[in-house]
Write a protein that binds this DNA or RNA. Structure first.
Length: 492
RNA sequence: GGCCCCAUCGUCUAGCGGUUAGGACACCGGCCUCUCACGUCGGUAACACGGGUUCAAUUCCCGUUGGGGUCACCA
């Protein structure tokens, strides 16, 4: 670290934003984690900086390789690509904490040598007993390590943890990018543990060593980490390094005001993917949660990157609103500007395959998309609305058939088929014109034939516009479905 | 309970001393209409409370209340 300022690249490096997302692989990627990743990613892109992904797997009890996989997949799906980290590498690796043990040991030893930290031989059991004893005396009191080993001079051959030597007086203050000035007296803190007895670092220590060595310039994370900032800043000082900037994000809570969990519905990125949400819509909703840009609600990713700033980040916690989330997704699916036809096709096709349909080809799907765009709220919903296009015969809703495919309508269906047969070209406007000419001549109303025809063609009472359906289905299938329905209506 | 943080419609939010307190979602009506949607017009709905500061407080300060976070050899 010494002499860093003398290196030619130092100035340039000092100006480059380096942010990170540091999930612990203990399960799925929580939607709140996605938001943290997003805000860091946004800042990196906005400032043309670097977005680092680091895996914090020091909790060996809970960390799994499968979780790492799940998290990487989710980030990729969302398009939150990292510049340094697992798979892509980088100059500050390795990017998995368990592979950085030597680094932590080095820093811990340095702190001990400098008197900034010390070995503590108190056992877990002893500490637990002390905690229990205090609890018995005063149920409301909170236990603080009494400093038993603080001035211990011997070095017995026993397991030990490394503890930080909390300065007697003073306080830590910093200016949070979101919350402004924050100050915490050191007296309110304690000699927290840096390294476990098995040599694996604890969160605060590992994160600080990594953020220093990875040259992180700004740490953005959830407000639940705000309590960790003072001890971390003290660690930076003890290690002789300037702390990065900090930005804490308000919490995303459930509608009930509790912490958002599985009990409140879908909370993992993968679940929203399975439900047919568009990645950019997810990021749009999350970006607008705790951050705003005037009255704008709907953004393309580029627009968010352009507009994002810390000044317009909110300080108060919010409640996750599934309804609004869905509405934002709907907006993205409706707009060709936000979701091009090609992207739409790519996203919806997997859901069509999952329904084991016939003839699902990108070209045909693309042609059918315009008629369902404004109706489908998710890609799953879109696949459902497209089902009749790729299934012969279409799934027939029993209630719809009972109501509309009745004897009285058989003639209408047959006549419509006859009329359409002569229509040319086979386009929605031409089909509509031909139909209306016939209706006028026959003294009938579109109302009389629309619903029976809709059921005949799609199997349902709700569908895209009738003539769009006929045009999309094509002549052969349209006529066949109308005539087949007429026959079954005839039979009753 | 200690420490820390927060406070505008039900929800997400705009507001950065003077506004008929705006938008979005949701909800309720009207219009459009071949169904469902989309679109469109309109409506219900908020500055937690009490003190200051000021000619003037939603806005600045203090307190109360309420909510949240955190108190591990988890992250």
């Amino acid at each position: 670290m010494a002499g860093r300022g003398l290196r030619p690249s130092a100035t340039h490096r000092a100006m480059t934003t380096r942010v990170r997302f540091a999930p612990s692989p203990t399960g799925y990627l929580h939607i709140g984690g996605v938001r943290t990743a997003l805000f860091n990613w946004l800042w990196a892109r906005k400032t043309r900086g670097v977005f680092v992904l680091r895996i914090e797997d020091t909790d060996q009890e809970r960390s799994t390789a499968e979780s790492v996989r799940v998290i990487l997949d989710a980030l990729k799906w969302l398009g939150l690509e990292w510049d340094e980290g697992p798979e892509v590498g980088g100059a500050h690796g390795p990017y998995t904490q368990m592979e950085r043990r030597a680094l932590y040991r080095e820093h811990a030893e340095r702190l001990i040598r400098d008197g900034k930290a010390y070995r503590c031989y108190c056992t877990r059991e002893e500490l637990e007993a002390q905690r229990a004893a205090l609890k018995a005396r005063d149920p409301k009191a909170s236990f603080r390590y009494p400093g038993t080993c603080r001035d211990r001079k011997d070095e017995p051959d026993l397991p030990y943890v490394v503890r930080f030597r909390m300065p007697e007086g003073g306080s830590v203050s910093y200016v949070d990018k979101v919350f402004g000035a924050v100050a915490t007296p050191n007296a309110a803190q304690q000699d927290f543990v840096l390294v476990r007895s098995d040599g694996v670092p604890l969160y605060n220590f590992g994160a600080v060593v990594d953020d220093i060595t990875m040259e992180i310039t700004l740490v953005a994370r959830g407000r639940d980490h705000m309590i960790n900032t003072p001890p971390q800043i003290l660690l930076y000082e003890a290690l002789g390094c300037p702390p990065p900037a900090f930005a804490h994000l308000p919490m995303m809570l459930a509608q009930t005001g509790e912490k958002l969990s599985k009990r409140h519905g879908a909370v993992s990125a993968a679940e929203y993917r399975a439900q047919g949400y568009a990645p950019h819509a997810v990021l749009n909703y999350l970006a607008r949660f705790g951050w705003s840009h005037g009255d704008q609600e709907v953004f393309s990713l580029d627009e968010i990157v352009q507009a994002f700033d810390w000044e317009h980040c909110n300080k108060s916690d919010g409640k996750f609103d599934p309804k609004k989330f869905l509405a934002i997704n709907h907006e993205h699916l409706k707009s060709p500007r936000l979701t091009s036809d090609d992207v739409y096709v790519a996203q919806v096709v997997p859901f069509l395959y999952a329904r084991s349909l016939e003839g699902v080809e990108p070209g045909r799907v693309k042609e059918a998309i315009p008629m369902i765009r404004e109706r489908a709220t998710t890609f799953v919903d879109a696949a459902d609305r497209l089902d009749f296009v790729f299934r012969d015969p279409p799934l027939l809703d029993a209630a719809a058939a009972a109501k509309f495919l009745v004897k009285a309508n058989a003639g209408h269906l047959r006549d419509l088929a006859t009329v359409l047969e002569k229509a040319d070209p086979w386009t929605a406007p031409a089909l509509e014109a031909a139909t209306h000419a016939w209706l006028a001549a026959a003294g009938r109303q579109i109302k009389d034939v629309a619903q029976p025809a809709r059921v005949a063609l799609t199997g349902r009472t709700a569908s895209p516009g009738l003539f769009d359906v006929i045009a999309t289905l094509g002549k052969t299938r349209s006529l066949a479905r109308l005539r087949a329905a007429a026959e079954s209506a005839e039979r009753g």
